[in-house]
Nucleic acid binder design. Structure first.
Lengths: 352, 352
DNA sequence: ATGAAAGCGCTAACAC
DNA sequence: GTGTTAGCGCTTTCAT
C-alpha cells in the first residue's frame, strides 16, 4: 500500500541501466543508445515518476540570471507595487537557496525611447529569462520578436502584446474590466443617465490597452442595458498641471444628468479632488490601490476601485519563470487575474 | 561583493566547532556545552544566516502526519471546494518530495455529535498537526483546548474560536463582511428603504459566526447611513423543504418598500428561485460561488456574491502547517482573507 | 558533549 | 554511449 516514492535509482535498477542514463533519457540530454532509451522509456511508461524538485535544485549549481523590465518604481505608486512584488519573489527564492539573480531594468513609462533603450540593453545582456511589462505597443513588438528568435524565454505581465510568443501572460482581461466598470457604475441607476469614460494623462495611441477597457465599457451598456436610453461619452484629459485640464473637466462635469465617471487608469483621485471641491455627487470608478485613491475611497468620493494586484502579478511572474527554468514546468499561456472590486468597506481586507 | 551564501559548514569553521554542534545550537536540540554554544551564538550574531530550506527537507526523513477536520465534501459544494484545496495543498507537497500525509476527517455540518465524534478520533490519533474548521462553538472549545494542552499544533480556518490558542486563523472578518453586504445592498438606493437579513436553514445558536455578520450589517446602516430612515429586520428561515419556509418567505417579501435581501450563508439561490417565480425585483446578496448561486448571478437575480475562497483557505492551511513543522516558520496569528466581491461581470475572472 | 560521516534524490563531471 | 562518483546543504546517527 505505502508505495515508497520512486527514485531515479529505482528506475535505473528496473531498466537495467545506470542512473546517469536514466537522467539523460528523462532530460533528453542526448548520448544514449536507442536500445537503452527504449528500456528506460518502457519503465517510465509503466510507473508514475514524479521527480523530487527539491533534490533537483539542490543538485544544480547553475546560476540563472533573470531580468525584469518595468517602469521606474518612482514613476508611479502602481509600479512601486510591482517592484515590491519582484522583491518578494526574489526573497522567496533566496529562502529556498535558489541562486537566481533578478536584475531590474527600469524605464520611463511616458517615454517610448526610454523603453526602447532599456529593452535593447536587456536583450544584449542575454539573460536566462525576462519578465516584461510591455506598455508601448509598437516598441514592444520587435523586442519580443527578437527574444523569441534568440530563444530567450519571457513572460509578459500587466499589458499583453497578443502576437508575441511569450511563455505566459500574467494580468487581467481589460475588456472584461471595462464591462465590470460599466456594471458597477450603472448599478441601481434606473436608465436614462449619462456616463463618462475618462482617459487621464495618457498618450492614447501608445496605450491600446486602455482602448480595450473602453470597448468593454461600451459593450456592457449595449448588451446588458440596451433598451435604456443611456448616454456614454469618452474623453481624453491632458496632464493635470496643464491649463486645459480644469477647463475641460469643468465642461465635462456639466454634462446633463451625469450619473457616473469611469477613469481608465489610476488617476481617479484627480477627478475626485475636483468633485469634492465642487461638491458634486457622481459615482466615480477607477483603478489601483494607490494612496490618493484610497483616501478618496475612504471619504466616499470614489465608490469602486478595480484592483489589478500588481504585486502579486510580479511575484507570480518570477515564480513562473523559475518554475520553467529550474523545474521544466510550462506555465499556462494565459494567467488571467481576478478583477477585484474594492470599496470603502472591503478595502482593509485587501491591505496586507 | 558577491557574498556566497553562508552554510552551516562555514559557521562551524568560524566558531571552531563541528557542524553537528552548530546544528544543535540552531535547533536547540540540547547536548551542547555553554562554552560551545557561546562561540556559535557569537558567530550567528555577527553574520546573517539563512538556512537553505530545500536542503533541510531533503535531509529529514521524518514522516509527518496531518489531519484535516472539515464538513463532509458532499454535504455542501462549499466544503467540496475546501476539500479540493486540501488536495491541491497535498499535491504541492508531493511535488517537492515532502513526505507528509494529510488525513481527512469529515463530519456532518448539521450535527454537533458528528463533530464531537470526529474530533475525538482526530485527537486520539495524535497527529503532528491539525487543520480544523470548527463550526460548532460549544463543541470546539474543549477540543481545541485539549489540542493546546497536548501541544498538538493546529490551525483554524473558516470559523474562528477566539479564545483557542491556534497557530493561526485563516478566514475572513465576518463583521466586516456584514458591513460590506450592507454597503453593496444600499448602494444607489437613496434612503428610506427596507432591508432584510436572512439566516436560512441554520441552527443559529450554534452558528455564532452568522451573528457577527448580522452585527456588521446593522452597524453599517447605523454608522454610515444613520440619518436615512432605513428599516432593517432579520429573520431565520427553516429548511426549504419545510412547509413554513415558503409561507414565511412570502410574508417577508411583502415588507413594504423592500429594497434588498442579504442572505448570510450560501443559500441565496433559494430566495432567488422564489423571487424569479414572483417576478419581484429586489437586490439580493449572498455568499459563495456554488453552482446555484452562479446561475442566478448570471441571470441577474443575485447582484453580489461575497466570496470566501474556501479552496485557497484550505490550501494555505496545509502550507502554513508545513512551514511551521518543517521550516520552523511561525505564521501570523490572523490571516484575514480579502472580502471578494463577485458580480455577474467579474465572475468568470474568478473561475480558475 | 562533540565530531565524523552517512545519507536525502538529483545533476554533472569524469572515466571508460 | 554508459556507468560511476562527487557533490548540493542539511539532518541524524554513531562513535568517542
Amino acid at each position: 500500500m505505502k508505495q515508497k516514492n520512486i527514485r531515479i535509482k529505482d528506475i535505473a535498477a528496473m531498466a537495467g541501466v545506470s542512473e546517469g542514463t536514466v537522467d539523460r533519457v528523462i532530460h533528453k540530454r542526448g548520448k544514449v543508445s536507442s536500445d537503452a532509451a527504449d528500456k528506460v522509456n518502457k519503465v517510465l511508461a509503466e510507473i508514475e515518476y514524479t521527480p523530487n524538485l527539491l533534490a533537483r535544485t539542490l543538485g544544480t549549481a547553475r546560476n540563472y540570471r533573470l531580468i525584469a523590465v518595468i517602469p521606474h518604481p518612482e514613476s508611479d505608486p502602481y509600479w512601486k507595487q510591482s517592484f515590491e512584488g519582484l522583491e518578494q519573489g526574489e526573497a522567496e527564492l533566496a529562502q529556498f537557496g535558489i541562486t537566481m539573480s533578478v536584475e531590474r531594468f527600469f524605464y520611463d513609462p511616458t517615454k517610448k525611447e526610454s523603453f526602447q533603450q532599456v529593452t535593447l540593453k536587456a536583450f544584449h545582456s542575454k539573460p536566462d529569462g525576462i519578465l516584461v511589462a510591455p506598455l508601448f505597443y509598437y516598441a514592444s513588438v520587435p523586442f519580443l520578436k527578437e527574444l523569441s528568435e534568440s530563444k530567450i524565454p519571457f513572460i509578459q505581465f500587466n499589458t499583453r502584446i497578443e502576437q508575441a510568443k511569450s511563455l505566459s501572460f500574467i494580468g487581467q482581461d481589460l475588456f472584461q474590466s471595462g464591462r465590470l466598470a460599466a456594471e458597477l457604475i450603472s448599478l441601481g441607476n434606473a436608465g436614462n443617465g449619462s456616463y463618462i469614460l475618462l482617459h487621464v494623462e495618457e498618450d492614447l495611441p501608445n496605450s491600446i490597452h486602455l482602448l480595450e477597457k473602453e470597448k468593454g465599457f461600451k459593450n456592457y451598456f449595449e448588451t446588458e442595458l440596451a433598451p435604456q436610453p443611456n448616454h456614454i461619452k469618452s474623453y481624453t484629459l491632458p496632464d493635470s498641471t496643464h491649463v486645459l485640464f480644469e477647463k475641460e473637466l469643468q465642461s465635462i462635469l456639466r454634462t446633463p444628468n451625469l450619473k457616473g465617471i469611469y477613469v481608465t487608469n489610476s488617476k481617479a483621485y484627480l477627478i475626485a479632488t475636483y468633485l469634492e471641491k465642487e461638491k458634486q455627487q457622481v459615482r466615480l470608478i477607477g483603478y489601483d490601490l494607490v494612496e490618493e485613491n484610497i483616501n478618496y475611497l475612504r471619504k466616499g468620493m470614489i465608490q469602486f476601485i478595480i484592483h489589478q494586484n500588481p504585486k502579486r502579478q510580479a511575484k507570480l511572474g518570477i515564480r513562473t519563470l523559475v518554475n520553467y527554468l529550474l523545474f521544466d514546468k510550462k506555465p499556462t499561456a494565459l494567467n488571467l487575474f481576478p478583477l477585484e472590486v474594492i470599496t470603502k468597506t472591503n478595502l482593509d481586507s485587501y491591505q496586507i
